[in-house]
Design a protein around this nucleic acid. Structure first.
Length: 442
RNA sequence: GUGAGUGUAGCUCAGUCGGUUAGAGCACAAGGUUGUGGUCCUUGGGGUCGGGGGAUCGAAUCCCCUCACUCACCCCA
């Protein structure tokens, strides 16, 4: 084959498209159920928009080009800058809070690997304008609800939750200067990727030399390894007496309380190892992980306080998350949870069959009437034996076969056959057309 | 950008020590005689063995180069 899809891109044949639509439709349905409104933006933007958020280094990781008007443009690699641009443009008039979602097609010039391609669809949820634990919890709730909707249980997936604000407060309380926090974040974020020994080595690298070293190391390991209920309690002792740490701990506990009330606590777990590499996160952060096999983060998000401001808007706190169709699909394949074709691909209501080629005009006429009435009706392009036509009907995922035989012209009746049960009834044409679903009692 | 692995039919793969015309299952198509599908039976189409070069009487098989894909690292906006 001379032509193929470009590296990291996919064709969507009807069977693939059915699965993609199933994922995207579920994203949309869940979003709407939770009170979010859909938005979208252009697929390309000024390159400067992405530079403003992520710096010059981002350029090599996105597809960019110069148009005929010498504009430096880039295909969007993420949705957040466009969202910020849209909100900033109407910051004075949009009612708060903003609860928006989108399912953009994105491109990143990365090297493809498991769970990551160069072109993909991403589900984005954001709540902007309110800085409160209830919105942190609501975002997590939405993500977990999606996992529930596609059939994943707490045995399949875990949502790990942390607070960068708590982490920062604890570090400050223990004497780590703020200019060291970023380095510490990086080490903690990699905790689960490293062996215990390598983690300790990494911690040692970022401790100060001299008398404080041992104490710093102990503290960082204690903080960094804290997870689960006991982990959260162990931090309580550490936060005691420090107002800012106590406040952030209360906030995080509040998030867990709300998640419990919302009924999704069994999916959620505190983990100090979730920090997220993105520099702009400031508060509660979270990532979902598959429990078996695919250890990659399935979805991730958190609270950002300065993002809109950085992109020229007013200071506004927001929280949100994103996940991609690629990683979701990989997870589902691994768990053998991909829905069967029959349940998600297109289904015909009727397949109209002639028992004799002379009756073909009646078939066409019937199909036209059924389609006009809003039913999905199909017929064979080839005049052949009834058995062959029924076979085609079944292959086309049809619910009812409508058989037009000599009795159609002689007695004014036709037969409707339920292709799932094999049950078949004969009814007058007029009765059928009055209510095509009636003969089978559905 | 760095490292490793894999390339045989649309898909999953077999192919012995280098030996004649490269195979299976699934999928696809046709048929199984004139009014009933899923099973079954028969038949068929489909291959530059990723590509190029080399050693050999002879290469899917051995050597070199190259390309593509996969996985991991980096990065994850």
């Amino acid at each position: 084959m001379k032509f193929r899809t470009v590296k990291g891109t996919r064709d969507f044949y009807p069977t693939d498209m059915a699965i993609r639509n199933w994922i995207v439709d579920t994203w949309k349905r869940v979003s709407l159920n939770h009170g979010f409104e859909e938005y979208d933006s252009p697929i390309f933007e000024y390159l400067d928009l992405f530079k403003a958020k992520s710096g010059e280094a981002i350029v090599s990781e996105l597809f960019h080009f110069t148009d005929r008007g010498d504009r430096e443009l880039a295909i969007r690699p993420e949705m957040t800058p466009s969202l910020a641009r849209m909100i900033n443009a109407r910051a004075q008039s949009l009612p708060l809070p903003i609860k928006w979602f989108s399912v953009p097609r994105l491109c990143r010039a990365e090297r493809p690997q498991r769970g990551r391609l160069r072109e993909f669809f991403q589900w984005n949820i954001d709540i902007v304008g309110i800085d409160d634990a209830v919105t942190d919890a609501e975002c997590i709730f939405v993500a977990v609800d999606f996992f529930r909707q596609i059939g994943l249980t707490p045995a399949d997936i875990v949502m790990k939750i942390n607070s960068r604000a708590l982490l920062a407060a604890l570090l400050s309380a223990r004497g780590f200067a703020e200019n060291r926090h970023a380095d510490i974040f990086v080490v903690l974020d990699k905790r689960d990727k490293l062996s215990q020994d390598d983690f300790i080595k990494s911690v040692e690298k970022i401790t100060q030399s001299g008398s404080r070293r041992g104490k710093e190391k102990t503290t960082l390991i204690e903080i960094g390894q804290a997870h689960g209920k006991t982990g959260l309690e162990s931090l309580a002792g550490m936060a005691e007496g420090n107002k800012s740490a106590e406040r952030e701990l209360t906030r995080l506990r509040n998030v867990f309380d709300i998640l419990n009330t919302l009924g999704v606590a069994d999916y959620c777990e505190f983990d100090m190892g979730i920090v997220r590499g993105l520099a702009y996160y400031t508060g509660v952060v979270f990532e979902a992980f598959g429990k078996a096999g695919l250890k990659r983060a399935i979805c991730g998000g958190g609270r950002y306080d300065q993002l809109l401001e950085v992109l020229g808007g007013p200071p506004m706190s927001g929280t949100g998350f994103g996940t991609s169709d690629v990683v979701i699909l990989d997870l589902l394949i691994e768990l053998n949870h991909v829905p069967t074709e029959a349940t998600i691909s297109k289904q015909n209501d009727f397949y109209v069959i002639d028992a004799d080629a002379n009756l073909f005009n009646e078939v066409l006429s019937l199909v036209a009437k059924l389609r006009k009435a809003g039913f999905a009706a199909e017929f064979s392009y080839r005049r052949q034996a009834i058995g062959k036509q029924i076979k085609q009907a079944a292959a086309n995922n049809t619910r009812w076969a409508v058989i037009v035989g000599n009795e159609y012209t002689e007695r004014g009746v036709l037969s409707v056959k339920d292709l799932d049960t094999g049950e078949q009834v004969e009814i007058p044409i007029r009765t059928f057309l009055d209510n095509p679903h009636a003969p089978m009692g559905k």
